[in-house]
Structures are given as structure tokens and as C-alpha cells.
Amino acid sequence: MIQLTPAAEADLPEIAALSNWAYRGTGAVASWTVESYLEGERTTAEALRADLAANPEAQILVWRDESGELQGHCWLEAGPDGAWYLGLLSVRPDRQDRKLGRTLLAAAEDHARARGGRRMQMTVINVRDTLIAWYQRRGYGLTGETRPFPYGDERFGRPLRDDLCFVVLERGL
């Protein structure tokens, strides 16, 4: 099992860099999860700082190897009735063939479960069929709920399509 620790202020630039690498393909090795229908950065240290300040129930958890190198991270936020929100799940694209994503996902679920979590929810952009299928193979189901994409808010990138929204996935813990 891996050790997840709460991110410190000093971790935010590194978390933003890994997020941009994983979501936008800004590193040497592209990820299969690259969002090619958005341009610009996925996030910045400043945006992460602001999001954490605006969501006191949330934290970013980091996973580092024995040498201290960041392997992955995720956003976890406790919600009502034992529902937890999982977001920004990212692992190093140059190591994705080592099952890091599923390992990080399981650790995030264990973290929430140990703190009273009964369900995990997430949102995924509707056109990410491969990613949605990946989560479904790990027990997440589409709830039928959708949420609007934040057009006009470039903190998440500039959309290149006008048909984006978020689908909600959920799994019992």
C-alpha cells in the first residue's frame, strides 16, 4: 500500500506541473489522459491555493516514492452523508504502464473510507470515453447526472468545442 500525505504549500508548484503534464501533455512523455479538446494549462499553483482556500473540507494528497519524487496526487473533499469527491487524480505519464493510477485510486478510496466515507463521486468531461471506461472498470457507474462545463472560466483551459459538460460517476466504498 502507498502512503498518501496532505500536500504542503511548497508542493503546489510541483502538483500543478504534474497536473499539466498528465492533463495537457506538457512533459516529455504524453499521457493517454491528455485533454486534446482544451488548450492552456490545466491548473497553476495559484489556482490550487485559491481552490483549497475556498473549500476548507478539501485537501490534495500526494504520493511520493522512497526518494521523495512525486508519483501522483489527488483532490479529496468530504461531503454530506458520507459522500466524498475525488478530483485531479494524476500520476506520472512516464510511469502509467505500472498501474500507478489504479494504486492511487485505491489509496484515495481507502483514505476516504477510513474517515467515514461511504461513497466516492467524481466528475469527468463527457467526451472522455476512454477515461470513463477506465473508471467503470474500477467499479464506478454513471449516475445520469451532468454538470455544466465552466465556459468562460479559463482556470481549467480554453475549450475547443462547445459540447462539453461533466458526467458524474459514483462508487460505494
Rank of each mutant, 00 (worst) to 15 (best):
G87T: 13
V127E: 10
A133M: 00
A83E: 12
D97E: 13
T103N: 05
R113D: 03
A78L: 03
V124D: 10
A112W: 03
I125E: 07
L131Q: 00
L104T: 02
L86K: 08
Q96E: 14
L100I: 03
G101F: 05
A106R: 11
D81F: 06
Q121G: 03
T103L: 14
D94W: 04
A112E: 06
A133P: 00
L100D: 00
I132Y: 00
N126E: 08
R113A: 14
P93Q: 04
R115N: 05
G79W: 03
G82A: 13
W134Y: 14
R92W: 00
P93S: 03
L104I: 05
D110R: 07
G79V: 09
R95W: 01
R128V: 01
A78C: 13
I132H: 00
K99D: 08
L86Y: 11
R92E: 04
P93F: 02
P80G: 13
L100S: 01
R113L: 09
V127W: 01
V127L: 09
R102E: 11
R118D: 07
G101L: 08
A133D: 12
P80L: 15
T130V: 08
D129V: 04
D110F: 01
R98H: 11
I125R: 14
D97L: 08
A112V: 13
D129C: 02
H111W: 15
W84C: 04
P80Y: 06
D129N: 03
A107S: 12
D110T: 08
A106S: 12
W84G: 01
L131I: 04
A78N: 09
V124M: 10
G117Y: 07
T130Q: 11
Y85F: 15
A107L: 06
K99G: 10
L131E: 06
L88C: 12
G116F: 08
P80S: 14
I132M: 03
A83Y: 07
V91W: 04
Y85M: 13
A108P: 02
I132D: 02
S90Q: 04
Y85L: 10
R92D: 06
D129Q: 07
Q96F: 02
T123G: 15
L104S: 00
G87Y: 09
G79Y: 06
T130N: 05
T123S: 15
L100V: 00
R92I: 01
H111S: 09
L105R: 02
G79I: 12
T130Y: 08
D129E: 07
R98F: 06
A107K: 09
Q121C: 11
G87V: 13
G82T: 05
D81N: 14
R113T: 07
R115M: 00
